[in-house]
Each structure stands twice: as structure tokens, then as C-alpha cells.
Design a protein around this nucleic acid. Structure first.
Length: 502
RNA sequence: GACCCCAUCGUCCAGUGGUUAGGACACGGCCCUUUCAAGGCUGAAACACGGGUUCGAACCCCGUUGGGGUCGCCA
């Protein structure tokens, strides 16, 4: 009799060949945070792995403003990550009638009753319970009323909500991630399923919608565990089949608090705007709480899809680490197809004023941009780095790095750069070999190390002290610009000299 | 406070009864000397604590501590 663990249990509740329907159910906030994105990813992976369906439902029953300006950003962010609903998107707010139908069914089942208690009375009771260190639970006062009493109150126009009655005993379900979870039913109060105005509340609407949408597997955040017990009792009262449940750990901030918009945690779209690739985000997010167990970390989405197994999801809450996200991004930039990089980088260059909107239409320009990207991609952490570290390939308008200026643009550099520029000019071909040859010639002439020429030249041509190999850099920039920039630097160095002497 | 969940380097992830406890990010050092924000090598760094079970526990059980979540006529 071996003890069950979550992996074994998950095998029991759903075998991997069964077609499934999963859903992600965000509420419209105009914002998709990384936690929700990650939950969506797990759902999506689960569906893809089994050839099932991935659906999106917008839970907008409370928020009056279910305008598309609050919904669209969420959909956009999901799409950015490569996830779209396999069916038409469901808006919970449009299903009021359906919810009411099931509410009537619930009343008929005898598993629910009308409650006439005032909000004030309930709030006071709750407060008292907390103060006395008891769990706040509804006292079932209204469950005692006879049918006649209820009828009379209703006719008298008393406002009432609907509460579900939770039976005695205990409730256990098998979580695909956490294994068996049990709760004493006395801990689950007779919660409200419908408002005084007759509209269904969250837990009830979710059950109805999940059932109607054919959802077979509910994969959501850990924070829904208590809801799961409530929902199970709704399924039972309505005599509907229960789906499988999986509760994935919550994403935490470095200070171990739950990630939230309020605390300034970034929107998924913001990471995108800052130059994180969607495949990086996808990869990093699903590795928070899951791994392929074989040491692989930086993976393509197809690889992840292949290796994914919900039973392998951890139980503990991981901390979101932006440093590691960026490190992943560096690797994904290296592996990413050039077209993707061009399409991401070009708009940023336009904003930076480095190229015009039609610049890319010229195939020659595109080729040049691709060359530069290939030269630079090795050292990019985020897409935005490109604008900073490769701007000099596209314009002469740059300042010299301050430290580099002090260190490299010493008085002697003027003469050396001039000589080197002249030597470059004599070369019939402008390639790595001849450049290296020219540099060696001048180094010998001045009896200095190559580095004493290389560094000032780099600074003169790029304004930077770091970057790709100098000869690659120069070949890409081209002879003409190289000479102009070197001579411009010479002038600058000379002007520094006169400033000092005057 | 009640209930539920969780617990391996600073962080993420391996490790399910016998391992020098492994990898990644971050951090330190060294190398490359054509730079580094690139690359290579390397170092420091963890089984929360206490009891059991067992010949033997990071791993199984119990407790403690710590962390997280939930406790609305919100979703």
C-alpha cells in the first residue's frame, strides 16, 4: 500500500489521451500580469499536449465597464505570448439568463434557501467572530424559515439573497498538482450564490459557465482552492459532473508578496515593450514551478510543449526574478530568427530617430540592418540595448563615452589615428585582413601595442568602449564613414589640447 | 484568528531511502589581451528546527517554526 502522491493521482483523474477543454478566465482590468499569464500558459500547454481546446472567458459580471479597452489589452498580451482562444471568447456578463436558469434549478433542488439577513447584521457578526478568534461563518438563521414564512417575507417586499446549504461531513477532491485535499464542511459556510437583485455571484457563474462550455480541467492559481470547495458543492447540488482541478503555485515578488498591479508589478505587455521576447517570457514563466527534469532551461516553445506534464508542477510558490528573465532573453535573442529581430528592432530605431519609416523598404538597408543585428545579437540582453549599443551604425550623431574619452583620447592619439586613417585609405579592399595589416603597420611604426590603436579607433568610430571585434565593426561601418569619424576624432583631440594650453 | 497549501544555495529548478546534494541566474576570482555589457574556466553558497520509522533519511510519519493563500450581496 504505497501512499498516493500527486503524480499518481493525476494519472487516475485524467489520462493523457482524453481530449480536454481548459480555459483561462481573467477579469477585465486592462492589464495581464505575469501570474495570470503563467496560468494561461499552463492551461494552453495542457490543452496542446492533449489535442484539447483552450478557451478564454472574460469574467466581467461585476465590473460595469466591460468595455473593450479593458479587455483588448489582455487578449493582446495573450496573443503576444502565442495564445488565442480556440472558440469565440465568452463574456460572463452576457450569460445572466443562463445563470438565473441554473439558479432556479438550484432552488428546486432544495439545496438552497433565501436569506433575509441585512448586510449590516452580517458584517457585524463577521467582525465579532474575528474578534473572538473564531472563523466567521453564517449562522444559518434564515435556513429555519418555513415555506410560508419565506413567501410572506417575499410578498412583504423584503430583500433576499440565495444561499446554498452545505451538507454535513467533509469534502475531498484530488488536485492534479497538490494531491488529495480535504476540508470539513463546517468550515465552508452557506455562502451566497445570488445577489438580492437576482444575479448570480462569482462561484455560481463559474460553475455554470464551466459546465456549459464543456470545461473538463480547471487549472488556476492557488488562491482559488477555497473556491474549489464551494464550487464542488454547487456541482453536487446541481447534479453536474465535476471537472478535474489543478491549482498552480502563485508567483511572488522578491519580497515574497503576491504579485499585483497595486504594488507596481509590471504588465506582461510592458516587458514586451522593454524588449523581452515573447518566447522568453513564455519560457521563463513556465519554468517557474515546472521543469522538464533533465536540466534544460532555455527552450523553444515547441520543445516545452513536447516536454510538458502537469504532474510535474511544483507545489511551492516561486519568486519572479527579473535578472533571470533577462538572462533567458539574451539566449533567446541568440536563437531567434533574424526576421523577428528586425521587426522588433526597427520600430525602436524609428522612435530613436535612427531610421525613417520607409528606410527598411530598401532591400539594401534591410540587408545592412540584418548584418548589424547579427554582429550585435551576441551581446544584447533586451531588444532595447540595440538602440544604445548599435546606434552608431546608423548615424554619426553620438557622444564619446566619457571614461573612454579620458583614457583613449590622449594627445598622442591624434597623430596615431591620423596615420592609421591614412593607412586604411591606401588599402584597395576594406576587409578584416587588410585592416589588421594596416593596424600592425602603424603599431610598428609608432612602436606601440595594437591595443593603443584599437581602443581609440573604437571610440572614434562608435563612441563606445565596448562592442563587437573592432575589425568586424569597421568593415560593417565601411571605409568612408570610418575615415570621417577617425579624422573628426583627431580634430576633437586637438581641440582638447588647445583648451588645456590656453 | 480560523481553515487550506507549502518548505533543498540569495533566487529558480533537479534530486522520492545509501549522491563528494547537481544545474541555471546573480555574486567573487582567473583566463582570453581586441575591449566587455561578449566568451571560457573556476570559487563561495542550501537540505528551517525537533522528534520518530529505518542498518541508513533532503527524501517516509508527527510536531514546531517560517512563508503563502482564503475568509464579501468582488472576481
Amino acid at each position: 500500500m504505497n501512499t498516493d502522491n500527486s503524480a499518481d493521482n493525476s494519472e487516475n483523474v485524467s489520462n493523457s489521451d482524453t481530449p480536454c477543454v481548459v480555459r483561462i478566465a481573467p477579469s477585465p482590468s486592462g492589464y495581464l500580469h505575469v501570474g495570470t499569464a503563467r496560468t494561461a500558459i499552463f492551461n494552453w500547454l495542457y490543452a496542446r499536449k492533449r489535442g484539447g481546446k483552450f478557451l478564454i472567458r472574460i469574467e466581467d459580471t461585476d465590473i460595469e465597464r466591460s468595455e473593450s479597452d479593458l479587455v483588448q489589452p489582455i487578449l493582446d498580451a495573450l496573443k503576444w505570448l502565442g495564445m488565442e482562444s480556440d472558440e469565440e471568447i465568452v463574456f460572463q456578463s452576457t450569460r445572466d439568463e443562463l445563470h438565473r436558469k441554473y439558479l432556479a434549478k438550484l432552488m428546486d433542488s432544495g439545496c438552497a434557501y433565501r436569506c433575509f439577513c441585512s448586510k449590516e447584521k452580517l458584517a457585524a457578526a463577521r467582525e465579532l467572530a474575528m474578534k473572538e478568534k473564531r472563523a466567521p461563518r453564517y449562522d444559518r438563521a434564515c435556513a429555519q424559515f418555513s415555506a410560508e414564512e419565506v413567501k410572506a417575507k417575499l410578498e412583504a417586499g423584503e430583500a433576499s439573497v440565495i444561499r446554498i446549504s452545505i451538507p454535513d461531513g467533509s469534502t475531498t477532491y484530488t488536485d492534479m498538482v497538490l494531491g488529495d485535499i480535504t476540508r470539513e464542511n463546517v468550515e465552508i459556510e452557506d455562502f451566497v450564490v445570488a445577489r438580492a437583485n437576482g444575479r448570480a455571484l462569482y462561484n455560481f457563474a463559474v460553475v455554470v459557465d464551466d459546465y456549459e462550455m464543456g470545461v473538463t480541467d480547471v487549472i488556476r492559481g492557488n488562491d482559488h482552492i477555497t473556491n474549489t470547495f464551494k464550487q464542488i458543492h454547487i456541482y453536487r447540488a446541481l447534479e453536474l459532473p465535476e471537472p478535474n482541478f489543478a491549482h498552480v503555485p502563485l508567483l511572488l515578488r522578491p519580497d515574497k508578496r503576491k504579485i499585483s498591479k497595486r504594488l507596481g508589478d509590471k504588465d506582461v505587455a510592458e516587458y514586451g515593450a522593454e524588449g523581452i521576447l515573447p518566447q522568453t517570457m513564455f519560457n521563463y514563466l513556465c519554468l517557474l514551478g515546472w521543469s522538464p527534469k533533465d536540466g534544460r532551461e532555455v527552450m523553444k516553445i515547441a520543445e516545452i510543449q513536447e516536454a510538458f506534464d502537469i504532474a510535474g508542477i511544483n507545489k511551492n510558490n516561486p519568486v519572479f526574478d527579473i535578472q533571470k528573465l533577462q538572462a533567458f532573453n539574451k539566449d533567446h535573442i541568440k536563437m531567434s530568427p533574424i526576421e523577428q529581430l528586425v521587426s522588433l528592432i526597427a520600430p525602436k530605431m524609428q522612435i530613436a530617430g535612427l531610421i525613417t519609416s520607409d528606410w527598411l523598404e530598401n532591400p539594401e538597408n534591410r540587408g545592412y540592418l540584418e548584418t548589424v543585428i547579427d554582429l550585435m545579437r551576441e551581446r544584447l540582453r533586451v531588444i532595447d540595448d540595440f538602440v544604445i549599443s548599435a546606434g552608431f551604425f546608423f548615424g554619426d550623431n553620438f557622444d564619446y563615452d566619457e571614461k573612454g574619452d579620458r583614457k583613449q583620447f590622449i594627445p598622442e592619439a591624434a597623430e596615431r589615428l591620423t596615420a592609421l586613417a591614412n593607412e586604411f585609405e591606401t588599402k584597395s579592399v576594406f576587409d578584416k585582413e587588410s585592416l589588421e595589416e594596416a593596424l600592425d603597420t602603424i603599431a610598428e611604426k609608432f612602436e606601440i601595442k595594437r591595443a593603443a590603436l584599437i581602443h581609440p579607433t573604437r571610440l572614434a568610430v562608435s563612441g563606445l568602449t565596448v562592442g563587437p571585434g573592432l575589425f568586424d565593426l569597421l568593415v560593417t561601418v565601411g571605409l568612408e564613414k570610418t575615415l570621417v569619424r577617425m579624422r573628426k576624432a583627431v580634430e576633437y583631440i586637438n581641440s582638447k589640447k588647445t583648451e588645456v594650453s590656453s
